[in-house]
């Protein structure tokens, strides 16, 4: 075992997975019009798990995690988040959304608010915190993502990597139990990918339950305790990162891995 591998396993051993189930998806199906995007999805996520979802574009990875906080509606099957079943009940949806944080590929910061205001808006209006408490909370998380000095700047004045870190801080300010990342580094320059990934690694080390759609295989090897491969709306393979990368079972996975490693 070389040193980098030793370091990796060391990092991962710090992150514990508990037996408590936080997300339970069973036999879930979704259609966009006639198009069957998600087919018979079964997935159980335990507290503290770091799951990386990968797969070719159009395979339904983003749609799957967007179903978890009801940005997309599923048509069949059951999704339970924190033992609350997702249905048309607006109150339940609001409750789940305040417990599930989401980070988007295109950051989606509110451009008319400063970084700090981006972070404090939801705590003040959803959690009914006082302005002062919310400011302190936001500064705490802006420090965690290492940009407290940018707090008063507007998103337009920040680099892509900084914007994405503000977006992570904004999601964390709701103190969520689960964090969803929808290709968080795909819109970033290579130099900025690292700063965002470092933030996410720290988050994982602190025990956050994370579901990450990404093509960063290095991140998957280093942080994930489970890698899920999706194609044509189905979960084709899921395994520990070691097994997944070194000994893929399905031909489709082998083809996908050979394609991303060739480049």
């Amino acid at each position: 075992m070389n040193t980098s591998q030793a370091k990796k396993s060391n990092t991962r051993s710090k992150m514990k997975v508990s037996d408590e189930i936080v997300i339970e998806i069973s036999n879930m199906n979704k259609w966009f019009g006639h198009f069957h995007v998600l087919r018979d999805i079964d997935l159980v996520v335990n507290k503290g798990e770091r799951i990386v979802i990968c797969g070719p574009s159009g395979s339904g990875k983003s749609t799957l995690i967007r179903c978890i906080n009801r940005l997309e509606e599923h048509q069949k099957g059951i999704i339970k988040v924190d033992d609350v079943e997702l249905n048309d009940d607006v109150k339940k949806i609001d409750k789940i959304r305040s417990e599930v944080g989401m980070v988007f590929q295109s950051f989606n910061l509110f451009p008319h608010l400063s970084a700090l205001e981006n972070c404090t808006l939801a705590p003040v209006w959803v959690r009914k915190m006082s302005k002062k408490e919310a400011d302190e909370l936001a500064m705490k998380y802006l420090e965690i993502v290492k940009i407290p000095e940018q707090a008063l700047k507007y998103p337009g004045q920040l680099s892509g990597g900084q914007q994405q870190r503000v977006a992570i801080a904004r999601a964390l300010c709701m103190e969520p139990k689960i964090m969803l990342f929808d290709e968080p580094t795909s819109a970033l320059d290579p130099e900025m990918i690292k700063e965002v990934l470092d933030t996410m690694i720290e988050l994982a080390e602190d025990g956050m339950t994370m579901i990450v759609v990404t093509h960063e295989m290095g991140f998957a090897r280093k942080v994930a305790n489970r890698v899920i491969f999706m194609d044509e709306g189905q979960i084709i393979e899921q395994n520990s990162p070691n097994e997944f990368f070194n000994n893929p079972k399905s031909d489709r996975t082998k083809l996908f891995l050979s394609q991303i490693i060739d480049h």
Binding site: R97, N108, L109, A122, V126
Partner: peptide, 11 residues
Amino acid sequence: GQYESASAVGL
């Protein structure tokens, strides 16, 4: 994305 991130933070 603005609508989505607004609902994602629970507004």
